[in-house]
């Protein structure tokens, strides 16, 4: 409890500290560059200078935090990828050489590609289908809320949930994992799903699809509602059936949103490691890049060089989406 109290104190101190910084720096700026009861020239000059400085007072803390926590690490990771395990000995390209000769890396890379194809596609697809269907039934909002719910569950929590579903009992013991129980019910043989080579990857992906479908659904549902009713009504008058309306009228109009959803989930897939860590820790051929990287950070005391090299690979995969995002944001701002 004392710990929680100190957390609350920290909140108050932190908020007050921030407030004091912003208030104090503004106050100081106004004191240093006064604009009242001075000759016109002085006032004009002071205001101009203050106008240059003030935005940076507002941006300062964010600027520093972003620099230290995101920009500097990207640069530093790049540098470390040329250094040895403790980050002190320059080793040239040998980390990269190791990377491209490592079966482990290929396995992780291959799996990651599989994740990148399956998860965003499946989540977007289900999200779209559910969004379309829930929009036409009276209890749609309840349905959406329930399908959206896994969003709030941590990856590790979701892993436990699904590990329970995939639970496997050998022999004739009753299966307490739902999946095997269903399989047995229909007369099949129970399987240790998590260790089934290759297919186990898909069983892990299901977890992320389960989590992300709600996200896709919420956004696509809003986009669908943004479609002018007139276009749908016109299509009905033109004699289009339900599926034609969906594929030829609705989907093309929300194409941009679908792309946004798809890329957002793609980014998430690249970062996700909790699920693999919790379910298999990369065993049985389920390794992915993010977990591989985490592994190298601590394996045998940690190899920063190799870890950094894997991080660079993840970063390279993200860059195209990053560029696309920036372009989109710029276009949007110019539109304003």
């Amino acid at each position: 409890m004392g710990q929680l109290a100190s957390a609350l104190v920290i909140v108050i101190v932190g908020v007050l500290g921030c407030a004091c910084y912003f208030y104090g720096s503004n106050f100081l700026l106004d004191k240093l560059l006064p604009s009242k009861n001075k000759p016109y020239d002085v006032v004009a000059r002071n205001l101009r200078i203050a106008g240059y400085i003030r935005p940076w007072l507002f941006l300062g803390p964010a600027f520093l935090a972003l620099g230290f926590y995101l920009v500097y690490p990207v640069v530093e990771s790049f540098r470390l990828s040329f250094f040895g395990r403790s980050g002190e000995v320059f080793v040239g390209l040998s980390n990269y050489a190791w990377l491209f000769n490592s079966d482990e890396f290929y396995q992780a890379f291959k799996n990651n590609m599989l994740w990148l194809i399956v998860v965003p596609t499946a989540a977007t697809f289900f999200g779209l289908i559910i969004a379309v269907m829930t929009d036409r039934i009276w209890w749609g909002n309840i349905a959406k809320s329930l399908i959206f719910m896994p969003m709030a569950i941590s990856f590790i929590g979701a892993s436990v949930i699904w590990k329970f579903i995939y639970d496997f009992r050998s022999g004739d013991d009753p299966q307490i994992g739902l999946l095997n129980a269903v399989v047995v019910f229909f007369g099949g043989d129970p399987q240790p799903w998590i260790t089934l080579p290759f297919w186990n990857n898909f069983f892990l992906m299901v977890i992320l699809v389960w989590i992300q479908t709600g996200f896709a659904m919420v956004i696509l549902s809003a986009a669908l509602r943004g479609i002018p009713d007139e276009t749908v009504e016109a299509a009905v008058l033109d004699g289009a059936n339900g599926f034609q309306i969906f594929y030829k009228i609705m989907v093309p109009q929300i194409w941009g949103t679908i792309a946004v959803v798809w890329t957002t989930i793609t980014i998430l897939v690249l970062k996700v490691f909790d699920i693999v860590l919790a379910m298999t820790n990369g065993q049985w051929g389920t390794q992915v890049l993010a977990n591989e990287m985490f592994d190298w950070m601590f394996r045998g005391g940690g190899d920063f060089g190799r870890g950094a090299v894997v991080a660079i690979v993840i970063m390279v995969l993200v860059v195209p989406i990053m560029v696309w995002n920036i372009r989109r944001a710029n276009a949007e701002m110019e539109g304003r």
Partner: peptide, 13 residues
């Protein structure tokens, strides 16, 4: 741009 920087990049540095 920073919105999409993977967290993993930052850990080691």
């Amino acid at each position: 741009g920073l919105l999409v920087v993977p967290l993993q990049m930052s850990l080691i540095p």
